[in-house]
Design a protein around this nucleic acid. Structure first.
Lengths: 147, 147
DNA sequence: ACTATAAAGGACAGCTTTATCTTTTATAGT
DNA sequence: ACTATAAAAGATAAAGCTGTCCTTTATAGT
């Protein structure tokens, strides 16, 4: 099992691409995004639709339309994306799946994973959607497989 | 998404239960295990079968038979269970799902998750199956929901 | 108004995960 | 040998995730 669902992986990659590509107000079509992040086009369309409904990204229909990230959306933490797609169990759930796992009724891994979870949360809370724009522009960071 | 698959959650809980219950050579039946860790019996049977085939736990058919953990199995790290069930992507995979993500071709989250992954690995490598026997026996740790 | 464009929405299909049930195999005790 | 027990193995089913395709809606440009 990976940390994030496939849906969430595509969502994050797409949002990173949108962020650095549309930072100047330009918009990009689903076809370009799918190609640049190496994801199935129709599936990604569904994902971005959903992110749009949730107010995490913006879109415009019609000619010259497409998806884009607004200034205010640029500073959202990554945890918003992850939570919108995969829910909050990565941040709050018990590693062994016990609903009532807590300080007073801990599972064997409770203390160990408390720290892991808070690390993950901290990382996703402190990085924003727009945080990587520069390195993505210069090509220092990658959002797809090299062919 | 949770850290582990449901299968892996059941596997770990079952193995913990087996460890502290069978440490004196006794064996336990699938019915008892399923009840004590609050899991579907038939599904758990499949999971334990698989762990048995992979040599992570032991079992005996027939009267007085059941599942048990041998001395040597007690000291196996939890990572062996996790890897047997969920594979190694939790320890090695790219957070954004890129196959070629690496130091020279990093995704935006590469460095951040490198640390998270190594924490998880370290934790699962350093805890063994038998590590929690005492607290489980005294009831300080829990493997199922309280009803 | 008409046309072309591009996202939104709906329906559906394949695969994997999660789960159940039944039959088979091994073995202890008599 | 026979019986009871308990895991192993096989077949099947429900649900969720991943992915595709087709129709509808909104809008820019003419």
């Amino acid at each position: 099992m990976a940390i994030f669902s496939k849906t969430c992986e595509y969502a994050l990659r797409a949002v990173f691409y949108l962020a650095y590509t549309t930072v100047k107000g330009k918009k990009v079509g689903i076809k370009e995004i799918a190609e640049k992040i190496d994801s199935p086009e129709s599936f990604l369309a569904k994902i971005l639709q959903d992110l749009g409904r949730k107010g995490l990204i913006s879109s415009a229909k019609g000619p010259h339309g497409g998806f884009y990230i607004e200034e205010s959306e640029l500073s959202r933490p990554l945890s918003d994306i992850v939570e919108a797609v995969d829910g909050h169990s990565l941040f709050t759930g018990c590693a062994l799946g016990l609903k009532q796992c807590s300080e007073i009724n801990p599972c064997p891994l409770h203390n160990e994973f408390k720290e892991i979870r808070s690390r993950i949360r901290q990382l996703l809370d402190s990085s924003t959607i727009g945080n990587f724009n520069e390195e993505l522009t210069t090509g220092l960071l990658s959002l797809r497989q090299i062919v």
